[in-house]
Write a protein that binds this DNA or RNA. Structure first.
Lengths: 144, 144
DNA sequence: TATTGTTATACTCTATAACTATA
DNA sequence: TATAGTTATAGAGTATAACAATA
């Protein structure tokens, strides 16, 4: 039985993404992390002091859904909150957090390298431009 | 604030897929369908008589999760089951099913066209090959 | 008025174990 | 023994509404 949807880029995009996330989650499982946690830790390291609402805006995670994510990593002693005003706190990695991030980054880097290796070398330069384009908001008019 | 993860193809793949599925679900909402329903209907039309377990294998949906999907479309009068043996039934579109599929296909086609239009024309021939490659099982050795 | 963090809630998607009836 | 359909259940991810405290 053949899949008749393989000609649809949107469908293949979904299948590729699902397979990739599943594989990344498996790679991260030894750390009891999931891909969302890894993205969060990488983001905090890149921009220490970012608030959880800001992280949510960047990763497009609803404010309400950031709460359990932050609480979980906080409970594991990996992040630290420092009040910036009465409402919000800047987030920082603890030393334990930096330690787990180092292992996380090694896994993510190996994962990304394995992903790109699946693409024939000649096509690799087009991978990011195409994915960014597919992600972009639609063009109002057909660009030539 | 900039997203430091934009250099990671796997991350951009996930974001592109999520945005695309969200948009497709919005387009399908007037029919009260979701993208999984559309894939299912397109598949049954391409291969009438396929059993729900076979559909699940093709779309990588667990047997158990096919049950409510099939029941829902059956309840709306869009598919018909014909026993092939004591255990399983082949699935077929009813005439109402073919009618809703025609509208579904129009939406999906327009959606896919809008998706590909976001990619610069020069890069479009590489979209499917790259997505298929990203989806593929890893190569055991680096191919030159 | 608007924003942050929060609680509560609900829906979708996914995953597993177990049962039955049939092959 | 293996497979198809099913039930039940649990974990993720996602979405909205509402509230208190603060800006």
């Amino acid at each position: 039985m053949k899949d008749p949807l393989l000609e649809l880029p949107g469908y293949v995009l979904k299948r590729a993404s699902a397979a990739n996330l599943s594989e990344l989650n498996q790679r991260l499982a030894p750390l009891r992390l999931r891909h969302g946690d890894a993205a969060f830790l990488l983001l905090i390291e890149a921009s220490p002091g970012t608030t959880q609402s800001e992280v949510g805006r960047i990763l497009e995670i609803e404010r309400a859904n950031m709460v359990p994510l932050v609480a979980r990593l906080d409970a594991r002693g990996w992040i630290e909150k420092r009040k910036v005003d009465g409402r919000s706190s800047g987030l920082f990695l603890t030393s334990a957090g930096r330690s787990v991030l180092a292992r996380t980054r090694a896994i993510v880097d190996e994962h990304e390298a394995a992903l790109i290796r699946r693409v024939p070398a000649k096509l690799r330069p087009y991978v990011l431009p195409i994915l960014m384009a597919l992600w972009s908001r639609p063009d109002p008019e057909e660009p030539k």
